[in-house]
Write a protein that binds this DNA or RNA. Structure first.
Lengths: 209, 209
DNA sequence: GTATGTTTCAAACAAGTGTTTTAGTGTGAA
DNA sequence: TTCACACTAAAACACTTGTTTGAAACATAC
């Protein structure tokens, strides 16, 4: 957080951290404004409501992420089918993810935890909001897999993509805690980058099964 | 729910459904007791507090599940290493899961959603409670994988198990919603059993990668 | 300078939360 | 019957929640 962040940015920074850490309902506006060192009412003034604040937190992440992902997808959509190996497609997903970690510190873990929570909100507003606004990117990603693996049926692709998402979100969301366990048990330092790179062969092999 | 369930059972049934559906903080005791058709105060009378009620919900699931899993693990621990294929080990995990679906309807989905929520509670009491009480089963499971796949390093096993858990929990937690999408898109009916069976080759291939 | 629009602040609001209390009901044993 | 115990019921409690209000402070243009 730089010295002269706007109130909105301070709120977003505090909110995204706390939402990822504790959940949406478990995080009160007073906790957020306390951490952000702004007045309580400023949340409703700038964002309208708590619900809108949650959506704004997701928007900031997803706009960064999806624009980056879109660029990669455009390149890949020009490629012939035999260039669309699982490893290639996965790195198109992973590289935009890792570049998030450059702009804000450790934000991949935060982002994935937020995604996991949004996913858990089965009947809530958030899941609808995210899928309606950013679902088209997932669709394009699906088409690339179908092109690269025509021997697989459409619903096999559909399900395996969800298996992959599950591994990714689940592992990266807990990566902080898991890394600590792993480093304690095996005396081996692991960056987020390493954790992700370890996943690629696992997921690729599953995709080709 | 049978005709003469005890108050405790009625509360547990209502609570596990609502917790899975909306989350712990988002579910009030009044909503639970309303659904269960019991008095509000009976939760605190029978369980002490909301926190203890949450733990009780997990206990009922995990006791059923871990005792069944333990039996399978004992059998497998007698086997030689070359019998410990990934598919075999996975079915030791999956069959107890599926048998949950027999006792109570659709409870696999509920169980997985609860596990996902417990996992998300990184710093909360619940994750500590679950890992402390039922972590030893996961450890035994890890040892079997190490025995079956000695060419993999310990931390490779560690991480790949988490990838698998991620796919399982993530997919099964959302299986209700995903099944509807899948059936709408591909006109193909899918039971929970089918969804899980589809996963096994994917996960096994990843494990062997 | 004044005037105007924007942002901050402290205080209050109504609604909902988990929990406790106190009284009441039913049940089985002595 | 009488007593003790387990359970249920309604009401109240203290507290936190998101949101709104109205005044103060600030900035910018005329």
């Amino acid at each position: 957080m730089s010295l002269h962040d706007s109130t909105q940015t301070k709120i977003l920074d505090a909110a995204e951290f706390l939402f990822a850490e504790r959940g949406f309902a478990e995080t009160s506006l007073r906790t957020i404004t306390g951490r952000a060192k702004v007045n309580l009412a400023s949340v409703n003034y700038h964002f309208g409501s708590k619900k809108s604040l949650i959506q704004a937190v997701f928007d900031r992440f997803l706009q960064d992420f999806t624009t980056q992902l879109s660029l990669r997808l455009e390149e890949l959509e020009q490629q012939p089918a035999n260039e669309l190996q699982a490893e290639t497609l996965l790195s198109a997903l992973i590289e935009p993810l890792l570049s998030l970690n450059n702009t804000r510190n450790n934000s991949v873990s935060i982002f994935m935890r937020l995604l996991g929570r949004a996913y858990a909100e089965t009947q809530g507003h958030l899941r609808r909001y995210v899928t309606e606004r950013y679902g088209h990117v997932l669709v394009r990603f699906t088409h690339l897999f179908q092109k690269g693996y025509p021997e697989l049926s459409n619903d096999q692709i559909f399900w395996r993509l969800h298996y992959m998402l599950g591994s990714l979100i689940f592992t990266l969301a807990g990566s902080d805690a898991l890394r600590q366990i792993s480093e304690a048990d095996f005396n081996r330092s692991l960056e987020v980058k390493d954790v992700i790179q370890e996943m690629v062969p696992f997921l690729a092999a599953g995709m080709k099964a």
